[in-house]
Write a protein that binds this DNA or RNA. Structure first.
Length: 298
DNA sequence: GGAATAACCTGGATGC
DNA sequence: TGCATCCAGGTTATTC
């Protein structure tokens, strides 16, 4: 599932091909891929046609591509199964392909950019760019202090140089919810999904149901550093791929699934203490943790 | 206002 | 073999 490292791999892969490129054609094959777009498929297509892309930016799990000559950007969210693939012009239509751009780049020539999404939780949209409240760059991949309106409510992610650590501690200290629920709240800290929440909690030896407000500051700091470390490592290994649902822009899988310590390892021995990793229901999904290393405290 | 939950969606895995 | 059911999970609207 695309979380911060997987989305960053996609952003970094797209940037050389997209930045400076002109959109020569845009075809919406499935309007369900425009659920976040205000307007019709035709308006989406016409707004992109002839525009050049100024940057490939990311905050948390959101991507955006500013359109030159307008304070507008194409916003992309991959949802659970979204992919952005680079293909040669005229490449055959992919299964679950929803939107295609044909672009021309002064250095790289002509390419097609495919938005492919099996479960249709992902989407593209054209959106207004707004100034960032803190005056810092909107996210990774841009120096401009602007962010799409649809991303404005999303907190900065822990790999963002402008991430507000003081706010992280302040907010966590006043929340009574389980720490895992808080980690998954993208308005609190962005980029962390079910996989990296389980991994960060395992690394920090914190039970996922621990009330956030009951954590000591040193524990919160350890958790934040663990989240940064695990996502940095995953990024270096190309992200986590369990199946064909996450691949980079060239269709290749990442390797971090081999490094997971908790997520998806139900019944396997904890690499620290040998206890069996357990899986428990957590809202609409699952939590994986070590019952010995991550004991629940009152 | 904060917290919890359901719904959206598709296809692979599993059970009968 | 074929059908039904379950499960995966990010975001958002709705409910409490």
């Amino acid at each position: 599932m695309p979380e911060l490292p997987e989305v960053e791999v996609v952003r970094a892969g797209l940037a050389p091909a997209l930045v400076g490129a002109r959109i020569e054609a845009c075809t919406v094959l499935d309007p369900r891929a425009l659920t976040r777009h205000v307007g019709t498929s035709s308006s989406f297509e016409s707004e992109l046609l002839g525009r050049s892309i100024g940057a490939a930016a990311r905050r948390g799990k959101f991507l955006w591509f500013p359109l030159e000559g307008a304070r507008r950007a194409v916003v992309a969210h991959l949802g659970m199964s979204g992919q952005m693939l680079l293909r040669e012009p005229g490449a055959a239509t992919e299964r679950h392909e929803r939107i295609r751009w044909d672009i021309s780049h002064p250095a790289h020539g002509e390419l097609s950019v495919l938005f492919v999404d099996q479960r249709t939780f992902g989407s593209l949209a054209v959106d207004d760019l707004l100034p960032t409240p803190d005056g810092a760059a909107g996210g990774r991949g841009t120096d401009v202090p602007e962010v799409p309106s649809q991303v404005a409510h999303i907190a900065r992610d822990p790999l963002d140089p402008a991430f507000d650590r003081a706010r992280f501690h302040r907010e966590a200290a006043r929340r009574s919810s389980a720490i895992k629920r808080v980690l998954l709240d993208q308005e609190f800290v962005s980029g962390i999904g079910n996989i990296y929440a389980d991994e960060a909690l395992w690394a920090a030896r914190i039970h996922p149901e621990t009330p956030a407000s009951s954590l000591a500051r040193v524990s919160r700091a350890r958790l934040l550093e663990s989240a940064i470390a695990v996502m940095t490592k995953a990024l270096a290994e190309g992200g986590t791929s369990f199946d064909a649902q996450y691949v980079n822009v060239n269709g290749q899988a990442g390797y971090f699934a081999h490094s997971l310590e908790a997520y998806g390892r139900t019944g396997a021995p904890c690499s620290r203490c040998g206890s069996a990793i357990v899986r428990v229901a957590f809202t609409n999904r699952s939590s994986h943790y070590c019952p010995r290393c991550q004991r629940r405290r009152p």
